[in-house]
């Protein structure tokens, strides 16, 4: 039902499909002169903007958790004999499926239209990391909701966190130019790990980063879910 809520929200569907497409095409076109032929501006933004959009997945989970259309029916679910962890997992799963489907469609279109390089025969590895990152940020959105209990507050914090992670991760500009302190700090952002791993897979064909990256993302997802279960109280939604 949470999945149906996301897919029947026309604004979310259009946003999830069109925003990556338009963002990559616009930024790629505007900066095309600054990039060479091996790694084009479309290649760069096709990767960084996808990662950035994945950090914003958390806003969709906040929506599937607390959006006005859903919060009242949630009340009936809280009263039903459904275990709390299942309620939370359903929100995470719905967001994960929705964003995975829409972003994969957007990625395929970008590859076909703008020739964005997603790693050729290593695309499966890139996809695996993207999916796990998607799951982590879906869980993160739900965790913030369980902590704040209000969609508006949760969304504000999520947007802030996403921007912070993305900036530290070097998605907007290279942090190397800001000094060693920032470079060290940037490794605190999960986005940095994801970004570096993606670059190495796509451009070096290096799969050695795949396992550790997947392991860290999985571990962080489990921790995030456990914290959410700990924080979730059905009575907060009565």
């Amino acid at each position: 039902m949470d999945l149906a809520n996301l897919f029947t929200n026309l604004m979310w569907v259009v946003y999830a499909l069109a925003f990556p497409f338009l963002m990559v095409l616009t930024l790629g076109f505007l900066t095309s002169g600054s990039y060479g032929d091996v790694i084009t501006s479309y290649d760069y933004y096709g990767l960084t903007m996808m990662i950035y959009l994945i950090t914003n997945v958390a806003t969709y989970s906040a929506n599937s958790f607390m959006e006005e259309r859903i919060i009242k029916p949630n009340l009936r679910i809280v009263h039903s004999p459904v275990r709390p962890w299942l309620i939370l997992f359903s929100k995470v799963a719905a967001t994960f499926v929705f964003c995975s489907v829409t972003y994969i469609v957007a990625g395929v279109i970008l590859h076909l239209v703008a020739g964005v390089n997603y790693g050729g025969d290593k695309t499966w590895a890139l996809l695996l990391i993207m999916l796990l990152a998607n799951f982590l940020f879906s869980a993160l959105g739900v965790m913030v909701c369980t902590a704040f209990k209000q969609e508006s507050s949760a969304n504000q914090l999520i947007s802030l966190l996403a921007a912070l992670f993305a900036a530290l991760g070097g998605l907007f500009f290279p942090v190397e130019g800001l000094g060693q302190a920032f470079v060290t700090l940037s490794w605190a952002s999960p986005v940095k790990w994801i970004f570096v791993a993606c670059l190495r897979i796509v451009y070096d064909g290096d799969l050695s980063v795949l396992l550790p990256t997947c392991a860290v993302l999985t571990l962080l997802s489990v921790i995030t879910l456990l914290i959410s279960i700990r924080l979730f109280k059905g009575e907060d939604y009565l």
Partner: peptide, 19 residues
């Protein structure tokens, strides 16, 4: 959970999926 399975709740607010 066993207790809740025997309950029916009609909340004051309309708890329905409008779409």
């Amino acid at each position: 959970m066993a207790y809740k399975s025997r309950l029916g709740i009609v909340p004051q607010d309309l708890a329905l999926y409008e779409d």
